[in-house]
């Protein structure tokens, strides 16, 4: 599985906006090296970064939002 995409993330728990760089799952993960789980630097909450189908859906929704502006 590929590593984190470097972009701005918003913690779904505390609302903190942060840069995903350096906030990834530790690379020693036995399941998938460098999987796309991001850890919020403020509250420690972990959540999967949208990739694959979810990433495509997010991209499509973002583009629609931009077009609507």
């Amino acid at each position: 599985m590929p590593a984190l995409v470097q972009r701005q993330e918003r913690c779904p728990l505390c609302g903190m906006a942060f840069d995903a760089e350096g906030q990834g799952c530790r690379p020693s993960c036995p399941l998938a090296t460098g999987c796309r789980v991001v850890c919020c630097p403020s509250c420690g909450y972990s959540f999967p970064q949208e990739s694959g189908w979810a990433g495509k859906l997010k991209g499509w929704l973002d583009r629609r939002k931009e077009a609507g502006r």
């Binding site: 779904p12 949208e50 990739s51 694959g52 189908w53 979810a54 939002k65």
Partner: peptide, 18 residues
């Protein structure tokens, strides 16, 4: 709705891979 769908899909992908 968009946020909910994206988050659900991301978790399901993660889960199914595992």
């Amino acid at each position: 709705l968009g946020n909910v769908l994206v988050k659900t899909l991301a978790r399901m992908e993660w889960y199914l891979r595992e």
